[in-house]
Design a binder for these strands. Structure first.
Lengths: 202, 202
DNA sequence: GCACAGAATTCAACTGTGCTGAATAAGACG
DNA sequence: CGTCTTATTCAGCACAGTTGAATTCTGTGC
């Protein structure tokens, strides 16, 4: 199909890298489903079989092409040190600096990737919640940490994953300002043990 | 393939309904990608061409089989009436009663559906934000409404769409209690105009 | 009653998908 | 130089969603 003389080519062209580059461009432009392995291979100027050979599968290439992170552990360590009063701001800062550093399209892409969502979920539930709870201490620390993670998850979701205009449009400094009160309350306000608030009608 | 004598069958079997039922079961069990039109048709006891005929495409059937709602407008109207003090609780209640009413798998399914996410996003940004801002009034009402929608989005995301254990495990009454402080702060605490909080290191 | 338009169904097949197995040529290394 | 491993092309398989033609029933107008 490409008539490029069968067998191993001369020199050592870094085909793997060219495939990753081509894949990245196409995945970002047309999404996972909308991109075919043949298109990627074509753009890289090689045969489509190479993609299975080098990356095992289309999904494998997808994982390599887009760096589907979840959260930067170092940034979290930073945030979980220092005075409790500034914790909210440091957490918001850790989230925005990490996620803002990536192309918006790439973030939205993660929403469609099962593995990325599983990773994010796992991180939030078994890392963030317990670390924050440890840091907070006190009786219902886990409850407050849960609320905080819910708020942070809200920022991640409405700003990066499925960008809701007013949230996504905020300059990153503004994010701290706008979400500060909510996150501070989540972290430090002990949830009142008041009786169920009558759900009006329903 | 089914040898059921070609042409229109006797009586008026509601094949459309049987297809929807079969599709629903399979989509919930194996996801969108994992379900083939032939499998659906097979389960419904008809030919796979009928699915294109009746629903236009596989996606069309998907849309019909799972009712991909976004938010119940009536519940929102209820919430946006009454004393401002109870607003947070009423909003949380509106969200949980609506989403709890649906099978968890079906909620998670929405995450993989572009249209559903677009609908949710559109609703949050052009309906919820402005309605809440109107209700709140005051100078930075939009800012506070934005924060509130962020928090509510966090609940939706971490509890239903990509269930993070501690949040998802909360009984629905507890959701109001745990997220109450954060949402109240988002709605009513005017964001301080303090200078950027030095991002420690990075 | 009956003709006949339209609706519902099956079947065969088309196109496009990711992936695999065999063939082949170059590099790596003793 | 000989051999083993690695990188590549090619042909094609199995399965996906969708389409067109053929077929049979339903429902309406006369």
């Amino acid at each position: 199909m490409l008539n490029k003389t069968r067998g191993r080519p001369r020199g050592n062209p870094d085909t793997k890298a060219r495939l990753v580059e081509a894949a990245r461009a196409l995945f970002l432009a047309h999404g996972y489903q909308g991109t075919t392995v043949r298109a990627i291979a074509g753009r890289a100027g090689v045969d489509s079989a190479l993609i299975t050979y080098h990356f095992g599968s289309k999904r494998g290439l997808f994982g390599q092409a887009l760096n589907l992170f979840c959260v930067d552990p170092a940034a979290l360590d930073q945030a979980l040190r220092g005075d409790p009063a500034g914790l909210a701001d440091r957490l918001l800062n850790a989230v925005t600096t990490l996620w803002d550093a990536t192309a918006p399209t790439e973030n939205r892409m993660a929403l469609q990737d099962d593995d990325a969502m599983r990773a994010l979920r796992g991180y939030l539930e078994s890392e963030l919640v317990v670390r924050i709870a440890e840091f907070l201490g006190g009786p219902d620390a886990t409850e407050r940490a849960t609320a905080a993670v819910g708020v942070l998850g809200g920022v991640i979701f409405t700003r990066y994953l499925n960008p809701v205009r007013p949230v996504a449009a905020l300059p990153s400094a503004e994010v701290r300002r706008v979400f500060g009160p909510a996150l501070r309350a989540a972290l430090h306000t002990r949830a009142a043990r008041r009786p169920g608030v009558r759900p009006s009608i329903d």
